[in-house]
Every structure is written in C-alpha cells, then in structure tokens.
C-alpha cells in the first residue's frame, strides 16, 4: 500500500481488540477505521466503554493483558532520516510490542498524555528527573544537556519558575502544573503524533482552558498531529478538525467537526448532542437518551445502538449489522437509514 499523498500520518484499518475474560470475550474495539494526516487534530468521541482509550493503547502497543489485537492494521507512515524525506510504512500491529522498533516509536514519535496527571507521574521522582529520563531514553545527550533541554521544554509548556519547578515532586504541584509536566514529558522528544486521552477531564474549567490553549500553541510550534480522545463535546468543538464518534467498539459516524455538530446523521450522535444541557438555553427537561449502555458481555446483535434508538426498525436494526455509508465525501455513517 502506498500513501495517496505524503500528508498521511496514520491509518487504522479494521482494528479489532479483544479481551478474553472468564465471563466471556469483550470486543473492546470491533472494526475501527481512522486516518490521521500530519499536523491534523482528530477527535475520538464516545462514552465509557466505547473503545476510544483501547484504540489509543493499541496504537502504542500497550493494551493491558489479556487484551489482544486480533485483527487489523495500524499503518504508520514513518519519516526516515537521510532518505530524501521518503516515508516508510510500518504496520505497528505487526511489530513485537517490546521490540526495538516499537520502543523507538513509543514515547518518542507517538506519545501520550493521560487523563489523571497525579497517577500518571511517578510520585518519588522530580518532574525534571522524569523529563530527563524520556530525553535520555530516546536521544543520545549528556546529563548537562538533558537538563538544559528539560528547562527549555518546561518553559515552553508555561511552567511557572522552571528553574525551581524542575526539582519539584508531583505532590508539590497543582493539577494544572502536573498536566503541563505530563505534556512536557510527551513533547521532550519530537513527536509526530500526540495522543491526548481526556487530558483535561480531571482539571477545573479555568485550568482546562489554559491547557487546551497550550496544546494548540504547541501544535503550531511542533507541527505534530493530535488524536484527542474525550467525551466532552465542548472540548471537541474547540479543539478538533475531524471527529469520529464511537459506540461499543464501533465507529458510528465520522465527519469534519462542523458537520458533526450541525448536520449529524447517526441517531446516536444526534441524541448525544440533544441531551446536553447548555448554559443560556432554558428548557424544563432535557431530551435524554433512553436506556443504559449495554454491558460489554452482552452487546446487542445487529446495530449495537438499536435498543436505545428512536428510529429503530424491527427486523433490520436488530438483525443485520448496518453498513458503512458515505453520505458525502468525508462524511460516513453506520446506519441503515441512509442506504
């Protein structure tokens, strides 16, 4: 497979990740497709259990056991040094998870910022130590230079008083500062893709705004692509260019951000948008999505959303898997209503 254009960075093709548990097999990701271009910001939206975080873990090959990639390709268009800027296509799904190549990519070219900055930083090391560790792993520099680079990166992520903070422990910092520290670790090398998994969910609104603005600024500076995993539609609207909506391991809709918010097609996307309370819009009752997300061992047959769907067609939605339909270029939806 050759890339159509040299802008392509990553293609997820028919990714399936399963967890074989005693109670049964959980199909956490069940046929995920997604393409990310260089420098693009893509949002992956969905509720808990929809498979958005597992997709990210698959990309980094850190799916926790007993989870396994059982099918699909993770094509990474990797820039190669000294080859005239040629791209080298690597299927991340085919690499050994702890092999040299994957270790070279993980944390260096593809990096991740996690949700909970308190639990994803080591409490017994200073923030400076943790950034220097990342630099030391991937770049051959001396201690002194690593420290200088660390100071520089702390400055770039807007850490107050970098020369003092570099020797602070995570518990001495506020939530916003810790998240800046996490971003600093992620950006300490030269990533092509930053995966941000709910990076602001644990933060206060005022801090959330600062971190999001920082991420936008850094994206401009570094030119990396961002895969933004979140359930917060406000964050999606502000940060992303292209949005993929997931439900129970499947992509149900994807389109550019304006289309998702103003011309959604899938009943689930529509229902989600309608159910949100909005400041300044007064309504006595919210239009709630009925029912609960089914438990992962009992995913309904056919379209997984059919028990909660307003447009449910008996005999079709509960029997056959809906096809993926392109209603217009770049706008796809998995629903029989658009056949």
């Amino acid at each position: 497979m050759t890339p159509q254009d040299d802008q392509r960075l990553l293609e997820i093709r028919n990714l399936k990740v399963q967890f074989a548990l005693e109670e049964g097999t959980v199909r956490a990701v069940d046929g995920m497709n997604l393409a990310i271009d260089r420098g693009q910001t893509v949002g992956v939206v969905g509720e808990s259990g929809c498979g958005k975080s597992v997709t990210a873990q698959a990309l980094l090959r850190i799916v926790p056991k007993p989870g396994e990639i059982v099918e699909g390709e993770l094509l990474y268009y990797r820039p190669t040094d000294g080859d005239g800027g040629n791209l080298h296509v690597t299927d991340l799904a085919g690499l050994p998870a702890n092999g040299d190549e994957m270790r070279d990519i993980r944390g260096n070219e593809i990096v991740m910022v996690f949700q909970e900055p308190m639990s994803s930083l080591a409490p017994v090391y200073t923030i400076g130590h943790q950034i220097m560790e990342a630099i030391g792993l991937h770049q051959h520099v001396g201690k002194q230079e690593a420290r200088e680079r660390t100071l520089e990166i702390l400055q770039r992520v807007g850490m107050p008083q970098p020369s003092q903070t570099i020797d602070s422990y995570p518990h001495q910092m506020s939530g916003g500062m810790r998240q800046r520290g996490m971003i600093a670790i992620a950006l300490s090398c030269n990533p092509t893709l930053l995966i941000a998994d709910e990076p602001t969910t644990a933060l206060d609104v005022t801090t959330q705004g600062q971190i999001l603005e920082l991420m936008q600024k850094l994206q401009n500076d570094f030119g990396m692509a961002i895969m933004f995993i979140t359930h917060d539609l406000g964050v999606v609207a502000k940060m992303t260019e292209y949005v993929t909506v997931m439900y129970l391991g499947k992509v149900v809709e994807s389109a550019d951000v304006d289309t998702i918010f103003h011309d959604p097609k899938h009943p689930y996307t529509k229902a989600l948008l309608r159910s949100m309370p909005r400041m300044g819009v007064k309504s006595r009752r919210l239009e709630a999505v009925t029912g609960m997300v089914p438990d992962p061992f009992h995913v309904p047959p056919g379209c997984p959303f059919h028990p909660r769907c307003e447009d449910f067609i008996a005999g079709r939605c509960d029997a056959e898997e809906p096809p993926w339909i392109e209603t217009e270029p770049g706008h796809g939806v998995r629903c029989v209503l658009y056949e």
Binding site: V205, G209, E213, V235, A237, K238, D258, F261, H262
Partner: peptide, 25 residues
C-alpha cells in the same frame, strides 16, 4: 465572569475567548 468564559460551548461555530486569569487559586 471568568468561570463562565471558561465554559466551552458545544458548537464549533461559536468562538469564545476565555478571560485570562493570572496565577493559581
């Protein structure tokens, strides 16, 4: 006012600008 300006509207067509607040709580 600062709190309200920090809320992100679920609509990409509405561009809000958060009032910048210096320092920490």
């Amino acid at each position: 006012e600062v709190l309200m300006s920090s809320v992100l509207p679920p609509d990409p067509r509405i561009k809000t600008s958060q009032i910048e607040m210096t320092g920490e709580v």
